[in-house]
Every structure is written in structure tokens, then in C-alpha cells.
Design a protein around this nucleic acid. Structure first.
Length: 425
DNA sequence: TCTGGGGTCCTAGGACCC
DNA sequence: TCTGGGGTCCTAGGACCC
């Protein structure tokens, strides 16, 4: 067996540039060449920035209130996040990518790995360019393409491609110079803690990490750390996951627009989140056997005492019935609620999920279940048609004062014709 | 005044058993 | 009086990702 570069894999990572910003720009040509920023839920943090906004020094993940002055001074365009729009555009992008290779792993809302091993080395950059051009033409979303023989290296390539004019980089041989200029904390799989550890040991770029001894990495980190090092050396350790798998847990949580003190308000939010989580797993034809409720005060408020607590309750019978789940969730909430705190966030997590068809071998499972399943289905269909939470339960409340802030929404809905751009000829 | 949300995987350590 | 040790399973918490 020989290990020439010819039989090496070629993995491409296609990543949308400033994805959320690009989505907003699609429907608003006026913001094309100006600084634009998209905020997280509750208008809390900056989660997407245009190139112009990056140049102004606005950092990823920065709290919005800290950059408000900068935003005002430079007339930065601000948008609240609109996830149904981004999700819709993401599906369109992925559909185009599937036309280039059926071996595809949709890694996140704005990026995908595809296997291009069948393309010859000498043609691969052109192929990458074709991918970019088609995605741009068919969806309007700009992308960058990084290609190499492992996922970690194609991440590196993509990172470099973002700064390159052509937007496509193929990393094959003699990549040490690239790795020497690649910051340790920009490596996929190296987060805050690992960066700290590596820098303390004099490892401050990808090239140094690549040449570290196996025994040291295994001793000092864990299997994931060791895999990253192997991948930097061009030895694939992280497989392309082409099978679409269902989620193993489902979390719905939100920060409050205004701090919440009362148990009643917390009940409303937990009920709402629980209904949404139950609907999500029903959509995937799943049931849950465990529910966690959690509440917490703000970890940033130094003037008030911090309180955070959660409770996990195992269910005797797997279910996806909203009413059952809400009942259990509220019981849990009552146990962890403490009077006298200003709560900032609440949520539920459904775990131990399994396929709804799989029987839980409980002889006592009542036949009545069919009846409630019919009810759930009716609720889901109605909500899908007329908008989320049109049918709810009384405990969820209406017009809640704790609802999140969303002051900069573009209100674009790709399912509604009213918001489609108009062309005048 | 104002600091997101939703996931996955790994590991240390406790509980339990013989 | 003498108070082991090894194995498995589970879970909470941490680290990472976007």
C-alpha cells in the first residue's frame, strides 16, 4: 500500500460569509456596502458582522450595549435575528451544494463539508470556484471554500480563503508556512481552555501543535486534542458524517426582556418553552423520558446574589404529550423556585429522546394515549398553519411582559409574498 | 437599563455489585 | 481483631462547536 497524495481524500468546507448579515442584505440592497450587524435573541450580543463592521473593531459575541456608541457614530445598521429567514436560506444553500456531491455533511446553519475526492488535484480549485459561483447565483449568498485532506485542515483552508481574493484555497503540499501563520486559537477544536494550555507551553500556532509529541498531547489533553493534532498532520481522524441523525436532546430557553421575580411569570415562560420543545420533538416523531427545568439570575449582575438551579425528572413512560410535560415541568419549577431573586433566564431540556414508534414495554400504557395524540396533532397542524402558539394552554399567558426584546427586526418572511423584493423595469 | 441559544462529546467520580 | 479491590454503569459538569 502506498500513501501518495493521489489516494488522499479531498474534503471541502463551504462556509457562508457573514451568513446572517448576507441574509439581511438579500432583501435590502441599501445595506450592501455599509457596516451591518445582526444581534442575538433579546438583542443581547453581536453574532454576525459585515466586513465593514469588523473593520470598525466590533467583536464577535460582544454585548450590544458595549458597542452602541460605536454603532451610532458610524451609522452601523442593526438587525435583530430572524432565524426562520436564515433557516430557509440555509436550506436553499445546502440544496445547491448537494448538486456537487452527495457525500455531504451539513455541519451548521451556514457551513457544510463535502467529499470531493473524485475531483483531480489540478481541477479542484476551479471546481471550488464553480461551487461559489453557483451558490451565489442561485441563492445570492457569498461563500468561501477551503479544501484539504482532513476536516481540520479544510477548516484551516477555509479560514485562509476568507481573506483571499478568489475565496477558494486548496491546501495540499508544503503547508507549513500556512500553519506557522495560523493562530493556535483559530484551530477547529481548540477553544479557550486548550489555547491557554498550549500557549503556556509555548505552542502558539498550528505548525507547533502539529509537531508536538503524541504522548504529550494525550497526557495533557484528551482524545479530541490528540485527534486535532493528527488531523493537522493530514491523517483523517474525524469522519464525514453523511447520515442525517436526529437530535438526542432538545432545549428551549430564553432570557427575559425584563427581569422576573414572581413564580407566576416563571410558570408562564416555562410553560411556553415546554410547549415549544414538545412540538419540536413531535415534529421529529420523537418521545422523551426525561425533562430538566432550569432558572437562573444574571451572572453579570454584581450587585445582586446569584442563583441558578435545575431539576431533572425522569418520566415513567416516554411521551411527547404537551400537557403531561407541562405538568411535570411546573412541578419541577416549584421545587427550585426561590422567592426574592431577579430571574434572567428560564428553560427546559428534553433528553433521553427516542423514536416515537419504539415501544416502551409498559403494559399499563393506557389506550387513551391515542386520543391525546390526536389532540397534539390537531394543535401542531393549526399552529403550523396560523402561526406558532395560536393554540396554547392557559398557563402560558398572553402578551407576556417577560417576552424578549426584538427592536430591530427586518420582519422578512420568505414564505410571505409581501416581503419579496420588487423589481421595477 | 442593556451580556444568546442549542447542540455534542468526554471524563471524573460516585453508586453499586460481588 | 481484621475493614479489599476490581468492574460496570450512570450522571453532572466542563469543554467545545456554530
Amino acid at each position: 500500500m502506498s500513501f501518495t497524495s493521489n489516494n488522499k481524500k479531498k474534503i471541502a468546507l463551504i462556509d457562508c460569509n457573514s451568513f446572517y448579515v448576507s441574509c439581511e442584505r438579500l432583501f435590502n440592497p441599501k445595506i450592501k456596502n455599509v457596516p451591518v450587524v445582526v444581534l442575538s435573541n433579546n438583542d443581547g450580543c453581536v453574532i454576525s458582522r459585515s466586513t465593514e463592521a469588523k473593520k470598525l473593531g466590533i467583536k464577535m459575541g460582544e454585548p450590544y450595549f458595549k458597542v452602541k456608541e460605536l454603532v451610532k457614530k458610524n451609522n452601523v445598521q442593526i438587525f435583530s435575528s430572524n432565524y426562520s429567514l436564515y433557516g430557509d436560506l440555509s436550506r436553499r444553500v445546502m440544496k445547491v451544494l448537494k448538486g456537487f456531491s452527495d457525500k455531504i455533511e451539513i455541519y451548521s446553519i451556514d457551513e457544510a463539508f463535502i467529499d470531493l475526492s473524485h475531483i483531480k488535484d489540478e481541477n479542484i480549485e476551479d471546481y471550488g470556484k464553480r461551487i461559489r459561483e453557483r451558490v451565489l447565483k442561485w441563492t445570492g449568498i457569498p461563500t468561501s471554500v477551503g479544501i484539504s485532506c482532513t476536516k481540520t485542515l479544510s477548516k484551516v483552508a477555509n479560514h485562509v480563503a476568507k481573506k483571499n481574493k478568489t475565496g477558494v484555497i486548496f491546501l495540499k503540499d508544503n503547508i507549513d508556512d500556512v500553519l506557522k501563520n495560523f493562530d493556535i486559537s483559530d484551530i477547529w477544536g481548540v477553544g479557550r481552555q486548550l489555547s491557554k494550555l498550549y500557549i503556556k507551553n509555548g505552542i502558539n500556532n498550528a505548525h507547533k501543535l502539529k509537531n508536538i509529541s503524541n504522548s504529550w498531547v494525550k497526557k495533557s489533553t484528551n482524545v479530541l486534542g490528540a485527534k486535532t493534532v493528527m488531523e493537522l498532520r493530514g491523517i483523517p481522524c474525524i469522519n464525514l458524517e453523511t447520515e442525517e441523525t436526529k437530535r438526542k436532546s432538545c432545549c428551549v430557553s430564553r432570557s427575559f426582556g425584563r427581569k422576573v421575580e414572581s413564580l407566576d411569570k416563571l410558570k408562564e415562560s416555562i410553560t411556553t418553552h415546554c410547549l415549544n420543545a414538545a412540538e419540536k420533538i413531535r415534529n421529529d416523531n420523537q418521545t422523551t423520558r426525561s425533562i430538566t427545568v432550569f432558572i437562573r439570575t444574571s451572572p453579570f449582575d454584581k450587585n445582586r446574589k446569584y442563583y441558578s438551579n435545575s431539576l431533572t425528572i425522569d418520566l415513567p413512560v416516554a411521551t411527547n404529550n404537551s400537557l403531561e410535560l407541562v405538568k411535570v415541568a411546573i412541578e419541577g419549577l416549584k421545587k427550585i423556585y426561590k422567592y426574592g431573586y431577579f430571574y434572567q433566564k428560564a428553560g427546559v431540556i428534553l433528553s433521553k429522546l427516542s423514536e416515537a414508534g419504539e415501544k416502551n414495554l409498559n403494559l399499563l400504557t393506557p389506550i387513551l394515549e391515542n386520543k391525546s395524540q390526536t389532540l397534539m396533532k390537531a394543535i401542531d397542524v393549526t399552529n403550523a398553519k396560523y402561526g406558532r402558539n395560536v393554540i396554547s394552554v392557559a398557563q402560558a399567558g398572553i402578551n407576556n411582559s417577560w417576552k424578549m426584546r426584538r427592536e430591530h427586526s427586518s420582519k422578512i418572511d420568505t414564505a410571505s409574498f409581501d416581503s419579496l423584493p420588487k423589481i421595477s423595469v
